[in-house]
Write a protein that binds this DNA or RNA. Sequence first.
RNA 1: GCCCCAGUAGCUCAGUGGAUAGAGCAUUCGCCUUCUAAGCGAAGGGUCGUCAGUUCGAGUCUGACCUGGGGCACCA
Length: 738
Amino acid sequence: MSQVATNGVIAGYEEHARTAIAKAVADLGLTPRGPIDLRPVPFAGTWGVASSISHALAGEAASAELAASGALEGLSKKEAKKLTSERARMLSVELAEKIAASLSASGAFASVDAANGYVNISFDANLVASGLVGEVLTRAQEYGAGAPRTERVMVEHSQPNTHKVFHVGHLRNSVLGVSVSRILTAAGYPVMEATYPGDIGMHVIKCLWCYERFHLGQEPADEQERGRWLGQVYTESDARLEYRKDLIGFLQTLIKDDPIFVESIDRLLKLLWREDADTEDIAYLLGRVSFGQELKDTEFRDDATIRKFWPIVGQQLRLELENEKPYVEVEGVDPPEMTPGERLDRWEELNQHIDWWPLVPGWREEIKQTFARWEAQEPALVARWQETREWSLNDFRRIFDELDAHFDVWFFESEVEEPGKEIVKELVASGLAEISDGLTVVKIDEKLGLTEPVYRTLPILRSDGTSLYSTKDLALTKRKFEEFGIDRAVWVVDVRQSLYFKQIFKILELWGFEQAKQAYHLPYEIVTLPEGIISSRKGRAPLYDDVKEAVLQRAREIIDEKNPELASDKKDDVAWQVGIGSIKYTMLARDNSKIVVFDLDEALSFDGHAAPYIQYAHARACRILENAEWDHAGAVDAANLGNLTLDFGEIQPEELALLQQISALPEEIQRSADQYRPLLIANYVYELAKTFNDFYHACPVIHSEEPVRSARLTLVDATRQALANGLWLLGIEAPNEM
RNA sequence: GCCCCAGUAGCUCAGUGGAUAGAGCAUUCGCCUUCUAAGCGAAGGGUCGUCAGUUCGAGUCUGACCUGGGGCACCA
């Protein structure tokens, strides 16, 4: 029974069943091709394991038998198949009966029967339940955890950029990273968690430029507000620098999907003519608009042209809105991107800053200079960077704390910039990298002798010698393995970076860095909004702090309604547990490969398949134990001494289902660790809550007679533990009352 | 053009080659004098994108195609 102690009670019984089936099969003179499959019996009212081994054996036998007898000759493929299939079904039923009979005769199982070609082995419920529940109570928080492993894993997640805001997109990453780390830990791996904030790069330069140039000293007095404020400065920097592109882009949209605008262009340009605009510019506009060709902001001779033209465009859009005709769909023609109302709004937005138009080229020049100052490590700029960076990091530390994300290592992009450049030098020296059109790249496919594009080409240094994201990741990967002695490194980064990571890992491998093979990119799909992609650049992102506030407020409202007697500070605790738990659960109860469309109304709905449902089941279990004045410590003692014996009397289907569900946790943990999928745990714990619900609706606990009462209370205790453990793996708290 | 991902109920999603494809939301109808109604029960709702193939057995594996999304030289 030592096997049972390490792998769990149920694993022991399963192993036992597997060996017995294998023996029964061998006694019949048959050899299964693969391992004996086992699964829970999929019917209510049973607890045990089923095998479809007789189907597999019968299939082979039927084919062989029919082929040998010549019965298939002259038949069409379809007919032959049908015949084989029918014969296999008959044989599998016979075989299952023989195997079941043999297992029954051995007397090793409570009951064995054959049904439909399956062999079903039922457990002696009271006996196995005592073992299982005893295991849950003695192992407590450790129940479900696997045997310790030696492979050391580093999980890097949570890579928000400083100088930008933390939004729900980052939230998915952190929540996923925390959960994957916990699941790997539970599966037995020693895990290191690492975060990697992007504290340098073009976004930082832009933000610093905008801060110095327009907002120096305007930062909020409250230090807690500064991170968010800085994010707004970043958004503004981008709006300024991209102003011309944005405006031209909008004109381009008008040309594409507003035929009335295009038809009116002659008249509009006549008006522009009267404004004394540059004639060549007018001709340029006329040509491009009437032929639907691409406009370029650099093609205008006079900066004043667009400023004169803009009010005219606005008048036209207003006119179109006033005379709006219902949109009629035409087959083969794409519907317009924007409604007339949206067009006017967008025009208005751009109009507010029309004076930016002539300034943009100068600003872009200033960005280059700021970048150069950074490269030269000008002390004043570096000091500014350190100060502002800290505002963002303050936010991140608080947010990670709130999310219960704890890191063993903090990597910063700024630390690996120089080491990265060193590696690039080596790569160039060794001939792996080359300089193509001034840009340092690795032509990976060429180096591998591939003719089809697979890895393509990766730039690893800008032509001006400044570092790229890739420059830094080369150094970081090396550092992870060499400095921290890990065996496997996992990057939790969204799916759009898949090719990029393939490239980085392959380059390191080509360079001769063996551990590159143990580097794994864990991709997950992005979070979008119902109206499209999240962009902190455009300032269109639900911020973590805002979503948190909304969700806490909603949770508090519901608590006030559902459980008004709860003490006020307790209400706050529960609101936090439920609110944060709900956000986390919606992120985790969707597979990594699925896009999450973030909708605040949905996030605020706590009904049905959501965290509170599971938390509620946990709270109910706690309350039952409390009302029964259940002696938890006594039960644990009994279990530790091996004295725990449960007597459910005539055991109910709901009790069996609950036992079966509790018993599945260890396997689910291993499976979700192997696949890096918290979803499996999210589903598991929901199913467990549901099964528990069924149980306590069907089976009175406190009001039942001994010994059933104690058996049920122990089962409730075990359920409470399994729910808490499952929620912990998701990073979600389990309230004792709510 | 090449590569990756998704396509299952009206919507959002589960589904480990195995028994009758399941949840939640939404809709309709029930259930609080019994351990918390954030709950429970019932009803309706499906050519599992299409077509071939592998298999005793395919929503699940393979191939082709269709639709949508993403990626592919100086963003991160």
